[in-house]
Structure formats: C-alpha cells, structure tokens
C-alpha cells in the first residue's frame, strides 16, 4: 500500500482544501498519496477536476457523514 499523508481541511472553504492538497503533494514522492478531509462540497467536486487537469491520479472520493475524503496519488 502507498504511503499516505492525511490533511484535515475540514472547516476551510474553497480553495483552501485544494491549496493544502497541492502543498502536501509537493512534499511527497511520486507514487505516494494524500488524503484530504473536507467539509466543503465544492472542493470535493473541484479537486478531481484539478487532478485531471494537471495529471495526477484520483484514488477516490467518499462522503463520510459531514465531510468528504478525497484521496490523490502523486503521478509526476
């Protein structure tokens, strides 16, 4: 299983969770993953768009009660 960094961005509005994700991706190695917890629905929609645009890999998006878990693998 890939190494995974957890970012708890619950309570932050767009584009806070995305910016936190990007900072975390820059700090890990290719193939490793970041899991972002976000209570912002817009970010749960936007992060996959961003991932597709820049060429990383979506592992999954899951709604967990009052927040979303978004997992991204660094691909480049």
């Amino acid at each position: 299983m890939s190494e995974r960094t957890l970012i708890d961005a619950r309570g932050a509005f767009c584009p806070g969770p995305l910016m936190e994700l990007i900072a975390a991706l820059k700090a890990i190695e290719i193939g490793e993953e970041v899991e972002v917890l976000s209570s912002d629905k817009g970010s749960a929609d936007d992060i996959p768009e961003w991932v597709a645009k820049v060429g990383h890999e979506m592992v999954g998006v899951e709604e967990k009660g009052d927040h979303w878990s978004v997992v991204v693998r660094r691909a480049k």
């Binding site: 309570g11 932050a12 509005f13 584009p15 806070g16 910016m19 990007i22 900072a23 820059k26």
Partner: peptide, 18 residues
C-alpha cells in the same frame, strides 16, 4: 468566523505553489 482563506494570504499561496 474563519474558514475563508484571506485574499492576501491566498495570493501569496498562489505565488508559492503556482
């Protein structure tokens, strides 16, 4: 109440990350 990124700080993040 918090949670909204400050505009000046957000621009600084955009400069640093993008």
């Amino acid at each position: 109440k918090g949670g909204t990124p400050d505009a000046v700080d957000l621009l600084a993040q955009g400069r640093m990350l993008g």
